[in-house]
Amino acid sequence: MVHFFEVLGIWIGALLTFAIFSFLYKDNPFYKVAEQIFVGLSAGYWFVYTIFFILLPNMYNPLTENFAANWIKLIPALLGVMMLMRLIPSIEWVSRFPIALVIGTTSGVFFLRYLKSDVINQLTATIMNPFSGNNTVMIVGQILLVIGTFTGVVYFYFSKKHEGAFGVTARIGIYFLMISFGAAFGYTAMARISLLIGRLQFLLGDWLGIIQP
């Protein structure tokens, strides 16, 4: 019986893979079915996941097991209930309070976090003697790092029009960005090929048994 469900699972997986691949030709009923199954199943899965892996272990269990030590969890619980007020049109304004709290907290927390990681740490990593190094390649790399950082920041300066010497500097900055994008594109394209290989291995190995997985 177990073997039957294993084979059935592989067949369903293979057919759904073909249904999704059929989108490469054009939108069609097979793709629509696969898409709706995917969206519906995943939505259901995340709903159950939220209950069993977030709501129960983080709120319900601590409150029922030791209320005195965990009563503070009632605050986020209350905020969650306030979010649900959106379902009642006459008091849907209540849901704005938890939203405001989340956005305000996020802004405050990330202000310092980004100031540290994207400003101070970046600054200290770039403050160096670019001419010190064991070999020419390292020195050239360090000089490029300094020029790229400087011109990149100039590109993202919004208070001055990009013209004259400032415009040239900003243009050099965008060239640095585009070169890094090109390198990243090639790198990620290779990673995507490996995803395709994984799917082909499933079809040719698990499903058809032509190759050894």
């Binding site: 696969a34 898409e35 995917f38 969206v39 995340w46």
Partner: peptide
């Protein structure tokens, strides 16, 4: 849906 690729498919 919360699912990354389920969302993309939709």
């Amino acid at each position: 849906t919360d699912d990354q690729f389920g969302f993309v498919a939709g």
